[in-house]
Each structure stands twice: as structure tokens, then as C-alpha cells.
Amino acid sequence: MLKSNLYQEEQFPSPLRQTWYEFRKSHLAFIGLCILASITLIVILGPFVTPYSPLTQNTDALLVPPAWDGNGGISHVLGTDGLGRDVLTRVIHGSRVTFGISVFLVLVAMLIGVLIGAFAGMNTGMRSSILNHLLDSMMAIPTLLIAIIIVAILGPGLVNSMWAITLALIPQFIHYTRDFVRTEVNKEYVIAARLDGASPARIFVFSLLPNMVEMLVVQGTLALSIAILDISALGFLNLGVQSPYAELGAMLSEGLDIAYIAPWSIAAPGAAIFIAIISINVVGDGLRSALRNRLKY
């Protein structure tokens, strides 16, 4: 029997949907997305479920091993630390601090970076030349080094380390936005908008920004993994969150003293950082290759 309709699909899938189809093809990326979603869920809901407080010390249960150990019990699934605080509770609260702050910092850095980058990309001449010179040298310095230097100036502490990491993350967003704007600004659709009399701000918001979203998402995932690493590294070096507050990096450095008798006190927070970063990287990579493959067809 002949098909009456030559085209199987009712409508052509939108770019977003195409990306999703490509993304779904990679099992690794999909698993990463599931893990990332469950981490988000745990971080949001966890504190309402955990029976302990992350700061309450319990001298009756010092250094209890994890549940699977012979001496451990189900009341402390991941054991307790040297002050009798439940490790699982602290990891959940710590993830909340580490990941929550990282997401916030990346969004702030993205906003500022895109604004400055758009300014640099759409301007030519002296102003943009000076900015580019500065940026080229800033890009070469690793974010953590900038963060350590800024913390050195401002002094240790959570808020100071947040400033430091935001400032350190901004240059790369400026750089990518500027490069993107540079290549796009001479294309026909932008020229058409300009001939219609659109102001630079309007061109940026209505013509360039919609095309930039994908690039920003990919860069955002990269920046997120850098932010998590940096904030926990600063916490680990006692330059970020100060004890007793739960933060994954700070927990690691606290567990350092009892690492030999209680390895779980450094294994749990480290594993939380590791799982979060690996799932973010896998999702980011899957997204990147999905976008790359989508353009092939």
C-alpha cells in the first residue's frame, strides 16, 4: 500500500529537541544527567530528611565506622567523625553549601562576563584593544591562583572566597562572549537588524543572545565544575569556609587528622565532590558533542 503522506514526521523537530535526541543517544551522558538530577534532589530535600544536625556533637558515638563495617550501625550510615557528628548529615549539608554556592557564583560570573564581553565584542578601537590586552593575560592565569591571591588580599572566609572565585571565573565568560560576538556581528541577520535601525543593545538582546544560549550552557557546566573544585580547594586549605561549618573541602581538611583511624571521614566528602564533578563533566561533554553532532545533519 502506498503511503499517502511522504513525510513521516508531522513536524520537524526544533533545535532544542534535536539536541535532546542527540544527547540521549549517549548512555554515559544520560546516566550522568540522572546522577546530576538525583544530586540536585538530595541537596534540596536532604536537610529535611536527615535526623541529625550537622553541628551537634555526640560524645557517645565517636568515630563510629560506616554501616557495612562490623562495628558500625544503621543509625549512622556513613559513620561519625572525631566529634561524633554524623558524616552523612554533614556531607548532605556540606554539598548544599559547596554546590549551591558554586551554582550561584557561576550565574553571577556569567551575567557580568557576558555584559563585559558583549561590550568588548561590539566595540572596536582603543577601548576594546585595552580590554583584550588585559583579558589575554588574565586568561592565562589559572582561576585557583587568582582566587588564592584574592583571598590572600581579603583574608580567609566564606564571603571573601566567594568574591575571589567569582572574580576568577569572569574572564573566561568575557573571552567566549567576545569571540562569539566578534564572529557573529558581521553576519547577515545582524546586519539586517542594524539596517532596521536597532540599537547595539537591542541587537545584542534580540539577535545575538538567543544564539549564544547553547554556548553559555556548555561554558556554564565547565565553569560549574571549576567553581566546585576551587571552592572545595579553598575550603581544604582553610582559606574558605571555616570550621565547624559543613563544607566538603573544609570537612576533608578536618578529617585529615583522623584519616588513618577513620578513613571514611575523608572518603565521604571527597567522593561527594568527585561524583558531582564527574557527572557535571559527563553532562557537559555530552551536551557539547550533541551540539556538534546536531550540526552534522
Partner: peptide, 17 residues
């Protein structure tokens, strides 16, 4: 992916342990 995502300070601690 594993090597790329592992926090260097945690890795160093595990290696020491």
C-alpha cells in the same frame, strides 16, 4: 573523565593513605 574530575587534594590523600 575520572582523572579529569577527581579533586587533586583528595587524590593526594588517597594515594598517601
Amino acid at each position: 573523565f575520572i582523572g579529569y574530575s577527581i579533586p587533586v587534594f583528595w587524590l593526594a590523600l588517597i594515594l598517601i593513605l
